[in-house]
Structure formats: C-alpha cells, structure tokens
Design a binder for these strands. Structure first.
Length: 508
RNA sequence: GGUCCGUUCGUCUAGGGGUUAGGACGCUAGAUUUUCAUUCUAGUAACACGGGUUCGAUUCCCGUACGGACUACCA
C-alpha cells in the first residue's frame, strides 16, 4: 500500500449467474470498505474467453445493485484505474511476465496441452500425480531445459508457448491471513503455475496480482478456495518487487449444503426448493431457469442481512441489521474460520422480520403491484392497506398475503370441508338467518358496533359464542381462518355480509 | 494420493483455563386469540475422539477421526 487508504475489490468471472456465495464475498468487501471509509471496486476477470457467458456481467452488476452494494469504481461505473475488465487490459500483462523471465523467476514452456495431458495420464496409470515443478521441469520442453539458441529459434518460429513461474525449492513461507492468522507453506509442495497463456492472455494468478497492484488494492478479501494459491501470489509480489505494496489477505469460509456434504450448489437449491442465486437467471444456451431471491419475493435487506450472518456475527445478540448498521459493525476479526451450512428456514425468518416492520401502506402497495395486478383485481388502495395491515404478521412473503386475504376480494364459492363439518352443524343455518336479521337492522356497521350488538344477542340467547362465530366465519371466509370477525364484516360492508350468509345457507 | 484449512445444540453461532456453556432458527408443550395464524411463556438439544500441559481443560499443545478447499494454458 503506497498510502493507507482502504481499497478492496470484488473480482468475479462472467461465467454465469453470480452465486450467493459470491454475493457474500462482494458484501464483505463492500462492508469492509464502508467501515474504513475506503473504496469498493468491481473488476471483471474475463481472461478465459472460452468460458465467457453473455449477460453474466450485467447480471453481476444488477445483483449487486439489488442488494444495495454500490460500486465506487469498476467495470460498470469507470474510475481512474481502469479499464476494469481484464480482457481490455490485455496488452498490460505481457510486460510483467517478461520482467519475471528476465529476473529468472519465470520461464517459457513449449509443452502443448496434449503433451501434458499424455504425461498426466501416464502418471495416473501408475497412481501418481504429475506436477510441473523443479523435479520434472528439467525433462520437459521449456527454456530451462533447452539451450538458449533452441529457445530463441522456437520463439522466432512462432511456436506457441506459455510462461510458467519458477517455483523456488524448499522455501518455507510464513504467511498471514486476516482470518486464519499464521499459515505456513513449503514451496516444494507447490508447482510451476502458468502465468501467461499461449493465447496472449494472463492467467488468473498473474492478472490478479498485477491488477491488485496497479489498482492499489489494500486488502484482498476472497473465498477460501483461493487459500492454496496465496503463496504463489505472495511470491509474485516479492519477485515483481512489490512486497511493500502487497495487500493484506483474508480468506472467507465457504457456504455449505444445508444437508449432506460439500459446498452449496445450484442442485441443492433445486432439490430443497430455495434459490442459490440473487436474481432469476435464464441460461442463454439451454434456456434453463434458475430461481432468484428477488423473484421469489425476498427483500434485498433480508437477503443481505442473512448473508452477512453466514460466517460473520457482531458478538452481540442483535440479529437484524440494516446495511448502515452492518457497515458500522463489520470487522474481519469477527468472521469465523469454518464453513457454514446454509439454512433456508432462517432466511425466511429474516424476510418476515423485514416484512413486519414495513408500514401497512408499503405492504399494501407491494401487494397491489405484485399480486392483485397479476390477478387483474382492482381495489381501493385504502382497503388494501387495511387488509394487509390486519394480516401482515401472519406471513413471510408478500405473495403469501393472498391466501390470507383473498376472501376480501372474492366471495367464497366453496367451503373448506373440514371446517364446515365442525362449524356448520345443528341449527347453524337457522342461527345464521337470525344473525342476518340482526345485522340487517344495524345502520352503524363499524366493527366495534356490530360486535357489541351481536355479542348481546348471543349472550341473550344463552348459547356458546362458537355456535355463532364459527359458522359465521365460514360463511364470510370460506374457511376457519382470518382476522377478527367484526373487522372483516366492517370491511366487507353490510350488503356483502348479508349476501354471503345467504349463499352459505343455500350451499351448505 | 499430496498440500493447506477447519470441528460448540439438528442448523447459524457466543464464549473461553474454574460458566447452571448464552442467544437465534427449527421442533415440542402451555397461555392468549371462542377460527387460523401471530404473540407470549416454557421445554428440547452441543464443546468429535484419544493423549498430554495444569490444582483444574470445552478453552492451550500433539495425534486420530471426520468435514472442506486446492491439486488445468478455469477462475
């Protein structure tokens, strides 16, 4: 770090939809930047053209945007360290590969992919694993084994080559990770990684280090899958002469399957019925659709809150955190070391917490837009607000509201058989007709007023409340559910209430 | 196979040499709501195992087991 400014980056590959684990990595980077008054960059690592998927980059940007993760600098917004797409930075990398060759820390290798595959197969047949390293490189087709003239001739002849890192022999590397603390690697167990491919593109390792250096990244916060390549990256900083500017590293634990073994995959979501992606994604090739949290009705705040608690916790008993609060509370020290199994149930619970705190008006508007409009129902917004307010603490999602309030918009055409069997028996029909008479005489149809009058009547008749209220509810709702009866009929209005009683008596 | 990382209730986790090992989700029960749900209250349930170190280890060390990542001209 040339100065102490915190600069972090999220560096996904545009190879498909962004997985929720990726979103969490982005989130932690973002929170870290906010916490320290730093900058959050988005860099697109598209050095592998063969895996490029159209639309993936837009998806990433849209997903982050939906989550409220704002990008200070990067592919979609620009900035002074651009371009932020590695494919657009292509001319930049060769120089560094050559610098490494000049210093003797890297070399040309002419082995073709096929040759290497063949060797790997031979090793495998003997139950051994082939690694391109100090033990094998002298017998392979590279500038370490060949004479200078031969190498020169091959290059001039245009023979394709890659540039490999010359891994030092038997050096013990003591590395520091912000989360895992002290980690030791011996270079003898490492291999000569390809830094520069024959297509003229750098590999992840080179591009990553070069770009982090050039973009003045202060902290590399990424998934645990990168921990094994941390020694290579550290070595690269050293050999390139950038040790003083080397960022600090933090490797995040993985998100695991809810049940069984292994890391969370798309299949788990399909099988268990929850999304693993933030947004709906349609595969451009196969047209396969993957569900998304947004389309499944999750609030971005809830999704983010849930994600933040996967591997991190504030050390207090507070669980509901706004993005502001997360930015304030976040610290790498409180990120755990072990992988977390994902719990879709808890995610629903988070959603519910946010749903309940929203105003009736807001919920009403969402419900109108997302559910009523879909069904072609037009309703007075005041009524929708009141209806939603009555039942909002019964659901986890806006979409579940319909089951709770449908009878406000459509009179029941049939009646729940189980409830009917229990509630509609004996003199139910007669009682309902009597009730209808009582109700029809009431001019002030407010909940409070109807309640007093009906209760007086029931008390005078000396029968159980259930004898009246249960069939009454069945007639109004069509089932044994719903809010306070008298609130329901106030909203339904007198005419509708009376006609529903008639319909129930005719039908049941 | 090799290298590295990890291991507290079913799950997410707090804690940390002496605690009734705390919270949350889930589940169960009771209360309330003369419906259903909510809500409230209670209950359920954990330091992977074996050796050390120590007066004392769930906590520190070492092993074992188990889990995970990596081991491509992919990121």
């Amino acid at each position: 770090m040339s100065d102490n400014k915190v600069r972090v980056r999220f560096a996904p590959s545009p190879t498909g939809p962004l997985h929720m684990g990726g979103v969490r990595t982005a989130l932690f980077n973002y929170l870290f930047a906010r916490k320290h008054g730093g900058e959050f960059l988005l860099r697109i690592e598209d050095t592998d053209q063969t895996r490029y998927v159209p639309g993936a980059e837009d998806y990433i940007a849209e997903a982050l945007n939906w989550c409220g993760i704002t990008i200070d600098e990067g592919a979609t917004v620009g900035g002074e360290y651009g371009p932020y797409r590695q494919s657009e930075r292509k001319p930049l990398y060769r120089e560094y590969a050559e610098k490494l060759i000049a210093s003797g820390d890297a070399y040309y290798a002419f082995d073709t992919a096929e040759e290497l595959d063949a060797i790997r197969n031979e090793y495998e047949a003997e139950k051994k694993t082939f690694t391109y390293n100090p033990d094998t490189r002298d017998n392979l087709n590279n500038s370490l084994a060949l004479s200078a003239d031969e190498v020169q001739a091959k290059i001039e002849a245009g023979t394709p080559y890659v540039v490999r890192f010359k891994m030092p022999v038997n050096e013990e590397l003591h590395l520091d990770d912000e989360i895992r603390k002290h980690v030791i690697f011996n270079t003898s167990a490492l291999d000569d990684k390809v830094l520069f491919k024959s297509d003229g593109m750098p590999t992840y390792h080179l591009a990553n280090v070069v770009d982090d250096y050039l973009m003045k990244i202060s902290h590399v916060i990424r998934g645990e899958e990168w921990l094994p390549s941390m020694p290579l990256h550290v070595l690269l900083y050293k050999k390139l002469g950038w040790e003083a500017e080397m960022p600090k590293f933090a490797h995040l634990p993985l998100i695991l399957k809810p049940v069984g073994k292994g890391k969370l995959s798309k299949r788990d979501g399909d099988k268990l019925g929850f999304p693993v992606f933030p947004l709906l994604w349609t595969d451009p090739k196969t047209q396969d659709i993957s569900s998304g949290y947004r389309e499944d009705g999750y609030f971005p705040e809830a999704f983010v809150n849930m994600l933040a608690f996967l591997g991190w916790n504030p050390g207090t008993e507070q669980e509901i955190f706004s993005m502001e609060e997360l930015s304030e509370a976040f610290s790498l020290d409180r990120v755990g070391k072990s992988g977390s199994k994902f719990d879709p149930e808890k995610t629903k619970w988070f959603n519910r917490q946010y749903l309940v705190t929203k105003s009736d008006e807001e919920i009403g508007q969402l419900f109108s837009k997302e559910v009523l409009a879909e069904k072609g129902i037009e309703a007075d917004s005041d009524k929708v607000t009141r209806v939603c307010g009555m039942v909002k603490d019964r659901v986890d999602f806006i979409s579940e509201l319909w089951d709770q309030v449908n009878f406000f918009f459509e009179a029941p055409l049939e009646f729940d058989a189980k409830t009917a069997k229990k509630a509609w028996k004996g003199e139910a029909a007669e009682l309902m007709q009597e009730l209808k008479t009582i109700l029809s005489d009431i001019s002030d149809f407010s909940s409070a007023n109807t309640e007093i009058i009906v209760k007086e009547w029931i008390t005078a008749k000396e029968i159980g409340f259930g004898k009246v209220m249960n069939p009454f509810r069945l007639a109004m709702v069509g089932a044994g559910k719903g809010p306070h009866m008298f609130d329901i009929i106030e909203l339904l209005g007198k005419d509708e209430t009376l006609s529903r009683i008639d319909f129930a008596c005719e039908t049941l």
